[in-house]
Write a protein that binds this DNA or RNA. Sequence first.
DNA 1: ATAATAAATGAATTGCTATTCATATGAAAA
DNA 2: TTTTCATATGAATAGCAATTCATTTATTAT
Lengths: 102, 102
Amino acid sequence: MKNTSYHNFFMNFANKTKLDIILALKEKPLSVNEISEKINEEQSKVSHNLKALKTCHILDMERKGKKRIYSLNKETALAILNIVEKHVKKNCPFRCEKCKKK
Amino acid sequence: MKNTSYHNFFMNFANKTKLDIILALKEKPLSVNEISEKINEEQSKVSHNLKALKTCHILDMERKGKKRIYSLNKETALAILNIVEKHVKKNCPFRCEKCKKK
DNA sequence: ATAATAAATGAATTGCTATTCATATGAAAA
DNA sequence: TTTTCATATGAATAGCAATTCATTTATTAT
């Protein structure tokens, strides 16, 4: 897969920082600094991760003065998250250790 | 995310070998060697990847003689794949280079 | 024009995931 | 009960992705 859109697409959900960003934007669009504060991560780290998310169209961006406001592509993101939640509820009722480890 | 079920869950779709396995099992259940031949990957590599997929309940396994038959959890896997296809069609109509690279 | 604020970028490095290779286990056939 | 077939497993390494840190770019206010 390496070098395909599938790989990049799923990496956006597999990485903690990226998923934190996605969850942070569920409620409403935010600027980079607002995201940074909300998820408690350094600005440049957030920016790098935003870029990947935006490249895959998981996020949209809109300039507003010197700020850049990022918003979630809910159609895709919420659909994906819903499936996982459903999957976990059905298949991992006890949150087994195996799942948590490796 | 590291150390959570979300991380592991999505890594199963982000990795080429694992996704190849998933796609190989869309049609029908297969033994390890059958998968190995179908996707043209070494047996131990396949086994390692099967383990991760099974741990996350993306696959089920059933013993049959000395063989082990793996089958796809279609409810989850197909749902996920459908969303991605839809997403790509809608957002990446030209399969832009950005998406393919990094 | 300059300073201040907001965010992006590049390069180096860290850290983790995936693969590889050798070996072990387990079931069935001879 | 030994061999063979099918698969799993462990440990070392290879190969990436993510983070960090310093710097740059862009916008607005003074």
